[in-house]
Design a protein around this nucleic acid. Structure first.
Ligand code: FES
Ligand code: FES
Lengths: 146, 146
DNA sequence: ATAATCCCCACTATACACATAGGAATAGGA
DNA sequence: TCCTATTCCTATGTGTATAGTGGGGATTAT
């Protein structure tokens, strides 16, 4: 039960973008370098984020990625739905996909687990992470390393 | 972020054992048939459960598996630790394994997620699942299908 | 002895994580 | 305008872990 790298990298990428949204669009190479993640893999995640409407892209020289919305309006739960998918945790959390659905006793436990996890994500916005990152930057004097 | 089959199968296997613990030791073939899971794969999971002290094994003819403790004394969290491992959710939830530990802002969120999930598992015992299974058996008239 | 059963080892299949290669679009200068 | 560097975009290949398969040996009740 590991959180996928899509979710972890995607979250860090959005935080990085939020920290630099006052400037020009940020190229994927800069994000990858700062966040220490493989460039090409990051780009494949940014495609998902673009299709889901989290980021805007500008092609060509001087192009890059920028946030499409205010960080305070983005909860990690929305991100989770896109990057982990609706079938997260177990396939049969929210519907009778499984042929054993009626007699299943474990499903309810996994569903409670899922709900508890999701509640944490619901109440955390991108802006929360950004302000926490700014605090840490201030404390350590390290500009870019979040 | 999928729950592994080890955890899902393992849980169902223990519930199945609890429902039949009044009888002889239960052979893996019976569990696999009732629970609709691959025999050989189930056996590899039962090895883990034996090593962790959840089940006792009896070798030879008329042998099989039986619970080592009272179902009320087994929380799903203990099972989780064995079958999903201590590094569940993310590798750096409980220690400075990661070289980015100090500046990391996402770790705290993942840690809260992990704690919330685990709390659900802590407060659910095998006996809870068993009684729920008995209710469902009674309601449907289906003896073995949990 | 025989059949039933656990147990160990090695093999295959599938999904995820990541790398590589190249193409398409755009900004900026000659 | 045309060229070129920069950047996003798409497709395909590779490594690794999880999931599942299979054969055969060890142990024990009958
Ligand atoms: S409903 Fe599918 S395994 Fe429980
Ligand atoms: S502490 Fe390792 S990624 Fe955050």
């Amino acid at each position: 039960m590991k959180l996928t790298t899509k979710m972890r990298y995607g979250t860090r990428a959005l935080v990085d973008l939020a920290l630099h949204q006052d400037q020009q669009p940020v190229p994927s190479g800069e994000i990858a370098e700062r966040q220490q993640m493989p460039v090409k893999y990051l780009e494949s995640i940014l495609v998902l984020l673009r299709n889901a409407g989290f980021v805007r892209t500008t092609r060509g020289a001087m192009g890059g990625y920028s946030l499409a919305h205010d960080p305070a309006d983005i909860s990690l739960a929305e991100l989770f739905d896109v990057l982990e998918g609706p079938d997260a945790l177990v396939a049969c959390t929210d519907g009778p996909d499984c042929d054993r659905y009626d007699g299943c006793v474990t499903r309810e436990v996994w569903a409670r687990m899922y709900a508890a996890s999701r509640e944490v994500l619901e109440e955390t916005t991108l802006a929360d992470l950004v302000s926490r990152a700014r605090e840490k930057q201030h404390a350590s004097g390290n500009m870019y390393h979040i």
